[in-house]
Write a protein that binds this DNA or RNA. Structure first.
Lengths: 220, 220
DNA sequence: CGAGCCGTTCAGGTGCCGTTCAGGTGCCCG
DNA sequence: CGGGCACCTGAACGGCACCTGAACGGCTCG
């Protein structure tokens, strides 16, 4: 899952970046409004953490611009303590959740998980697909109840696929969501990793649709 | 386990701090309402001991604010003798237990252990994970019944891990809960201590999840 | 003041894993 | 039937996250 963090204050920003990276997300960071606007418009994020009160351009106006342009990733806004006016405006502008500063990092992680879950239409933090089960809270995967150990990248790829069960996911979509900006393109890393996932989860767990991409579970 | 003590009277405060530190907790201290509010909002405490009747800001309103913001660490409030009104209000505001002043230090420690235990979903004051057993009352650890002597920091790390069995705990999460505020970051102390724990408890007792953190007991 | 304990630092080592590469397989086209 | 393209696969590499042994230095206690 790839997340954009928009936060001008360096300290909080770095802290967020680290916490999210620790949690296994791919993180891009924007320190001012213009950069944020551009990145949110061009890169396919799975969620955005947006601080209001930025230099160069107000967070709310960026959010409205994104929504007007049809960008519909979930947005979690960070507001100053107790300023409920901002919360209301934020919700109206299209935010999905808000958190008052200062906040506990663990709470932000929990809410982010909830947003990602809701955005992909799941009710539970545990994703299931056939015999495969993935717990987004503990980053654990089991096959027929037996634990499977995955590497960090294998896990990210599987998690992305399981958020879109049955859908075809192209290789380029995968690389965009599993890596940060600027990633060398012509490489077959994804193919290798898909291969390793199949070895661990069973060949039929992931089917390939020639010319289009990959899909979870057999076409049957 | 990291605990916040909110107490304005210097004598009692120092006494509490010392007793809790002796018992192996990491203690932060707040002497007035504003500081307490801020710390509870920003730092990831495992429990809070909260005296009502503070300068600058009332304890109950702080508690309500924390709860409204979704902070759900267990809170033990200290009330004046026999003022059951405060107790009722405290429970309503989201306290988990109360203790009348003056109190016996032993009792406070016992109740705190109970709160921490409940918060992490354990029924017994004795935590078990495979062959390892940790008694939170006496701070004793045994491996296959044989006593193991741990240093203070080793014990804290192990206790935190055992409160979250099977979950991945990142290095930064460990430092946040095992040390007080402001701790020099780029250092490999945690790695060294994990290494020493493994030497005492068996290499497989703690498994490392590369890039994410550590976890108790092998995935098998 | 000296001894021992313990948390921390440092330097060097190890092994994992993301990546690359070379060659193979099977599908689709003519 | 043959060639080409998309994808697969086993092996190997190399960087970096993590490990480890040793030494340091602050602290407590006799």
């Amino acid at each position: 899952m790839r997340v954009l963090v928009v936060e001008d204050e360096p300290g909080i920003g770095r802290h967020l970046e680290e916490a999210l990276t620790d949690a296994g997300y791919v993180v891009d960071r924007a320190a001012d409004g213009e950069e944020a606007h551009f990145l949110g418009d061009t890169e396919p994020y799975d969620a955005v953490v947006l601080d209001l009160g930025l230099p160069k351009r107000d967070g709310l106006s960026i959010l409205r611009a994104w929504r007007a342009a049809g960008r519909n990733f979930p947005v979690l806004i960070l507001t100053a303590r107790g300023s409920w006016r901002e919360k209301v405006e934020g919700i109206d502008a299209g935010a999905d959740d808000y958190l008052a500063k200062p906040f506990a990092t663990e709470e932000l992680l929990a809410r982010l998980r909830a947003l990602l879950r809701r955005a992909s239409g799941h009710a539970s933090p545990i994703l299931r697909s056939g015999a495969i089960e993935l717990d987004t809270r503990t980053a654990r995967v089991t096959l027929n109840g037996a634990p499977v150990t995955l590497t960090a990248l294998e896990y990210r790829i599987l998690a992305y696929l399981m958020h879109r069960p049955g859908q075809i996911v192209s290789q380029s979509e995968l690389t965009e969501h599993v890596y940060a900006q600027d990633f060398d393109r012509d490489s077959n890393t994804i193919e290798v990793l898909i291969g390793r996932l199949r070895k661990k989860l069973g060949r039929e767990a992931i089917s390939t649709v020639r010319g289009l991409g990959y899909r979870l579970s057999a076409p049957a």
